[in-house]
Structure formats: structure tokens, C-alpha cells
Design a protein around this nucleic acid. Structure first.
Length: 602
DNA sequence: ATGACCAACGCCCTCTGCTGGACGTAA
DNA sequence: ATTACGTCCAGCAGAGGGCGTTGGTCAT
């Protein structure tokens, strides 16, 4: 099949290039093959097409050859840079492989014969497959798969043009309008256009003249390159085109069609069977709209369309204060309120005020009504918010979804993991304003300041023993160590008393402190310490276990041997001399000096 | 298109309690 | 001198409260 189509496309940016140069021979670029978290491929997507969903179509070869030629023979890139219209026409070689899918557009007054087409399945001799649906007043083409570009006797208002197996989208094409300029669609232009194109050529013009850039004067008018994105949904007269862009840059296309009964059949298919299905849909039949990028479904097409924006990076509403962009005016307004401090929702019971009514309602549940609708089935815990109950339940299940990548620690919530990571960094973010000591946690610093730098430091009194302890946690340790019940009673080492509480045992033991509980069984000697009794008993046995290594003299006590050794065998030994302060006479013991000094009058 | 409402996520905070090293004191 | 032990203290984690923000749905 030779070249049968020619595209005249007004571009807004160079992004168009990759659409223009789509070629089925090209490899599918990686970013277009995956959906975040889904690993969905285009092949899979196409398999899914049979499910009656809004379908996506494949874009290939997103990177064009800058030297490729347009219709007029000039390099495409150059044509684009010049900002003009880009005309494409499949070359004789490439003709059947070039592929552009345009979901258009175009209803003109007096073209009732087109509007009368409710669901038009076009697979004319040219090979173009089209599924066109009719709304109450809007005739829209759906995704179109065609087998070749060519003249269409009854070309509808919308058209997607493809060649062979490929279908390509305008997912990020910043165009506002597409006009289909084709012989039988716009007969008036036929003669003129036919001068510029080969017979059977399809000419599509994308007209940006109707771009709507203003954001209704809400906050700030966006620069054209931003605001235009919002208008990837563009309208030509009564028809609409929706072109969506997934977050991962994967192209997809959805056409929107609002029917009178809020029902629709959305189908993109290159199979005749599916096309039949669209035609045979019964009136009144419920249709569920599926998002091809997530599990979202809706009975309303409008809901799906709004949902599809969530898969888009489009954020046309920009804060004029911080340049942060938002998808909706409401989000932007709430954000701006955070700058301005505007909090319209004031609590009637306290001074708090909030940006949204939801915040106020939640605040009132926390602080005033104390309503806690989320109740744990395993304990008495209840919470104001579902997320808190979810977090709480992890304390029952032990689930720890947040893993530290540096150690084996796993946390039950993100904050604990973040706090834990400080232990790896060694960071101590909290500094005492008095002594500049640093701490890892604010609570640790707080108690430091309280106990080191505050007056009237609170102390915690043990309810059992009147002990005062600085920290409550240490009081817990105290209670655990000294006042917990011991199942196995402990016997006093000095008597037969038994105690189940360690504190009581210690107190009892103290009663033995000053008593001469160690008694000699051979005489009346008694003493406080057992070691003294042992030494005493040697007077009965005659044992002298300490022997001098120099003279073999034996002693009952170690200290006696030490004194002996120093006095008789240590040449460096200098005996201590206690001198009388009045006459200078020396004595070996202080007591003798003291007795001597009594001789002198005061 | 917009606002109201609700749900969900995320962040930060406090309170709490356990742990182990440092230190002082009694035995 | 040594040992045992209680308290002090900082580090750290568990649990939960409170609020900011964003997204989805629905009604208008």
C-alpha cells in the first residue's frame, strides 16, 4: 500500500516530533513499556483491549531522526524549530509504517451526515479502522486503529491514523485543536488541499488558535508551556479529544464521550469482533469504565476522565508565592492559604483554626468531642483516625514493614525508622541551651534540662520504701529489683529468716549489722565479722599460717607478718617517729608521744 | 468547575519504658 | 582493696496524639 495520507499538524513543542516520526520498525522505548509498579507492557495492554475498557494504544519510536524529512523535504526538526505546521506524509517505503493516531475533533455546521453516524466503524478500502461514537450533540471518534493511511469516503470528525499494526498517541502533544482536512469531510477545502497532497492523502491540521491558557484568573496565569498541558483535552467545536499522559511518561489515549444516558461504549480495537460489540450495545446497558493504569472503575465516564488526570503530571495551577504547582484550583487555594495564614474554619471551643473543614472536624474529635470511631477488635484501643488504628494493629500483629538498610532493625512506622537512622549517623540534633550538651532525642534533652538545670526538680518517691529517685523510669527499675515478689523465698545469710521481697531482706540484714553475731564455740569471744572469729580461733588451735620467707618466723595474722618483714628485713624501712612538739623527743607510737606531752603544763 | 466531605499518608511531637555504662557507697 | 549494688544518666525504641497535606467522590 502506498502513501495515502498526509498530516498537517500545528505543533506546540518539539514533543510532537516523536509522534510524527513514529515507525513500527522502531523499538519500543523503555519508558513507554512500563507502568509504575505494574510492569505492564504494551503487548499486554493490547491483550487487554478486548475487555471493553478504554484502551491504550502504542507509541513507538519516540525519538525521531532529526534529519528525517517532512513533506516539504525539510528536516523535521528544523520544521519544528521554526514553529510552523508540520506536514508528514509516509514515504513510499515507509508509508504503511508511519503511524499517527489522532483522536479528533471536528464537527462543522451542516455536517449532519457525520453526526448521524452513531458508531461508525470504518474500515474502508483504505484500510483505516475507526470507531466513532455519537453523543447527544457530540460526535467523537474513539481510538482508531487503521491499517493504512488513506482517503476516507466518510471520514468522521475524529480520526486516528495508523499504519499496519501500530497505533500512536498524542499523549503529550500540546495541541488544542485538530481539524481533519480531508476530501469528503471538508469538501470545501478539498480542492485547495488536494493541490498539496497526493491523491488519497489524509490531511490533518491541528490548530492551536483556540488554546485556552488562562486559569480563570484564579491566582496566576501560567506560562503557555505549562498551562497548555491542561488542555491536552482539547476541543474542536463540539468534539473533544482526551489525551492523557501517564506518570511514567507512557503514552495513552482516551477519548471522552458523554452520552445522554450517561452510558457509553468505549472501545479501542483492531478486531472486527470488538467493533461489532460496540455497535451492538443495547440502549440502557450499564457500562463500567476501567482505568487501564490502575484498578479504578466507575460508572461515569466523567469520573474516569477526572481520574485519568491523576495519572498525569499536569499541574496547571501554580502558586505565585513558591511556584509549587497543583492539579486543581482547590488544592492551590488551600496551599496559598498556608502561605497567607488564612484559616477560614475556626473551632468554636478553642482558638484553633484550619484551612479545611475536614481539619476542623478532626480537631474537634481529638480535642472536644473525643469521638473515636475506629475501635480495635483485639483490645480497648480506639482512635480518631483509621490510620492510627492501622498503626496500632501492628502492635498486635508485630508487623514491621519499614526495614533499616544498614542493620536488621525494622520499624512499624516510618517515623521510628527515621529516628532509628540517627543511631547510624551519630547525629545528635538536640542541644541543651544551658550546657550545650547534645542529645539524640528531644525527650532525652528535655529530661536532661529538667534535672540538671531546673529548680524544684521533681523526684519520684517509691510507695514502698520512701526512696526518692530522679527518674520515673529508674523508679520502675527500683520497684522491679527491690519490691517485686520473689516466688522463691531468699534466706537471710545470718539467720533462718525467709523473704519474698528483696528490699525486706536487705532491711532485715541490716538488723544484723551491729550485733556480735559471730561467737566462739570454745570461749566467750564474740565479734561482728566472721574473719575476726577465724583469726581468734587460731589462739585455740595454735595455728600460725603466715611464715616469714627470710627468718621462717610464723604469725597468726598476715598483717603481723607484714610488720615484721618491714621492720627486720626491709633495709629501706624507716620507722615512723612521733616527736613531742615541745621537747622534740621521738616515740614510735603517737599514743606514747601524747602521754609524754602531758608532762608539760599548758 | 467548584466546594464539601472524607480517607489516607506523612510528619512531628510527647510520653513511656527498657537498657547499659558510670559512679558512689556499703559490705 | 574488692565486690555488690543502687542510683544517675543518656541512648534508644514502642506507642499514640495531633495536625498538614493531598487525593477521590459526590453534589451543585
Amino acid at each position: 500500500m502506498g502513501p495515502k495520507g498526509r498530516l498537517l499538524i500545528t505543533l506546540k513543542s518539539k514533543d510532537m516530533v516523536r509522534l510524527m516520526m513514529a515507525s513500527q520498525d522502531s523499538a519500543l522505548p523503555e519508558p513507554f513499556t512500563k507502568i509504575k509498579g505494574a510492569e505492564r507492557t504494551w503487548d499486554k495492554a493490547r491483550e487487554d483491549d478486548g475487555g471493553g475498557k478504554i484502551s491504550w494504544v502504542k507509541e513507538r519510536n519516540s525519538i525521531p531522526d532529526p534529519d528525517a524529512e517532512g513533506l516539504n523535504g525539510a528536516p523535521l526538526a528544523k520544521q519544528l524549530e521554526e514553529g510552523g505546521n508540520l506536514e508528514l506524509s509516509p514515504s513510499p517505503v515507509q508509508g504503511e509504517k508511519h503511524l499517527i493516531m489522532l483522536q479528533t475533533v471536528h464537527l462543522k455546521e451542516g455536517e449532519d451526515e457525520l453526526q448521524a453516524v452513531s458508531q461508525l466503524n470504518i474500515q474502508q478500502q483504505s484500510g483505516v479502522h475507526m470507531v466513532v461514537q455519537r453523543g447527544a450533540s457530540v460526535l467523537q471518534p474513539l481510538v482508531v486503529v487503521q491499517q493504512g493511511v488513506g482517503a476516507q469516503p466518510n471520514l468522521p470528525t475524529g480520526v486516528a491514523i495508523s499504519i499496519q499494526d501500530g497505533v500512536y498517541t498524542f499523549h503529550d502533544v500540546e495541541v488544542m485543536q485538530i481539524n481533519v482536512l480531508q476530501e469528503k469531510v471538508q469538501a470545501k477545502d478539498e480542492e485547495k488541499q488536494s493541490l498539496d497532497k497526493p491523491p488519497g492523502m489524509l490531511l490533518i491540521k491541528i490548530d492551536r488558535s483556540k488554546d485556552l491558557h488562562a486559569v480563570e484568573g484564579k491566582v496566576q496565569q501560567l506560562p503557555p508551556n505549562e498551562e497548555g498541558r491542561e488542555k491536552d483535552i482539547f476541543t474542536v467545536e463540539k468534539a473533544k479529544i482526551l489525551s492523557c499522559k501517564a506518570k511514567d511518561d507512557m503514552s495513552m489515549s482516551h477519548c471522552e464521550h458523554k452520552e445522554q444516558e450517561e452510558q457509553a461504549v468505549i472501545k479501542n480495537t483492531d478486531t472486527l469482533e470488538a467493533q461489532k460489540n460496540t455497535q451492538h450495545r443495547k440502549k440502557g446497558e450499564k457500562v463500567i469504565f476501567h482505568c487501564d493504569l490502575c484498578a479504578f472503575t466507575s460508572l461515569r465516564l466523567s469520573s474516569l476522565n477526572r481520574h485519568m488526570k491523576t495519572h498525569s503530571d499536569e499541574k496547571p495551577h501554580m502558586c505565585h508565592l513558591c511556584l509549587k504547582a497543583f492539579r486543581t484550583v482547590t488544592l492551590l487555594r488551600n496551599h496559598v492559604n498556608t502561605h497567607t495564614g488564612t484559616r477560614p474554619y475556626k473551632c468554636s471551643d478553642c482558638e484553633m483554626a484550619f484551612v479545611t473543614s475536614g481539619e476542623l472536624a478532626r480537631h474537634r474529635r481529638y480535642k472536644h468531642t473525643l469521638e473515636k470511631p475506629f475501635k480495635c477488635s483485639m483490645c480497648k484501643y480506639s482512635s480518631v483516625e483509621a490510620s492510627k488504628l492501622k498503626r496500632h494493629i501492628r502492635s498486635h500483629t508485630g508487623e514491621r514493614p519499614y526495614n533499616c538498610y544498614l542493620c536488621s532493625y525494622a520499624s512499624k512506622d516510618t517515623y521510628k525508622l527515621k529516628r532509628h537512622m540517627v543511631t547510624h549517623s551519630g547525629e545528635k540534633p538536640y542541644e541543651c541551651y544551658v550546657c550545650q550538651a547534645r542529645f539524640t532525642q528531644s525527650g532525652t534533652m528535655k529530661i536532661h534540662i529538667l534535672q540538671k538545670h531546673s529548680e524544684n526538680v521533681p523526684r519520684y518517691q517509691c510507695p514502698h520504701c520512701n526512696t526518692f529517685i530522679a527518674r520515673k523510669s529508674d523508679l520502675g527499675v527500683h520497684l522491679r529489683n527491690l519490691h517485686s515478689y520473689l516466688t522463691v523465698a531468699t534466706k537471710c545469710r545470718y539467720c533462718e529468716a525467709l523473704f519474698h521481697e528483696r528490699y525486706a531482706l536487705i532491711q532485715h540484714r541490716k538488723t544484723h549489722r551491729n550485733e556480735k553475731r559471730f561467737k566462739c564455740d570454745q570461749c566467750s569471744y564474740a565479734c561482728k565479722q566472721e574473719r575476726h572469729l577465724i583469726v581468734h580461733k587460731r589462739t585455740h588451735t595454735g595455728e600460725k599460717p603466715f611464715t616469714c620467707v627470710c627468718c621462717s618466723k610464723c604469725f597468726r595474722q598476715k598483717q603481723l607478718l607484714t610488720v615484721h618483714f618491714r621492720k627486720y628485713h626491709d633495709s629501706n624501712f624507716k620507722p615512723t617517729v612521733y616527736e613531742c612538739p615541745k621537747c622534740g623527743k621521738g616515740y614510735s607510737r603517737w599514743l606514747l608521744t601524747w602521754d609524754h606531752s602531758k608532762m608539760f603544763p599548758l
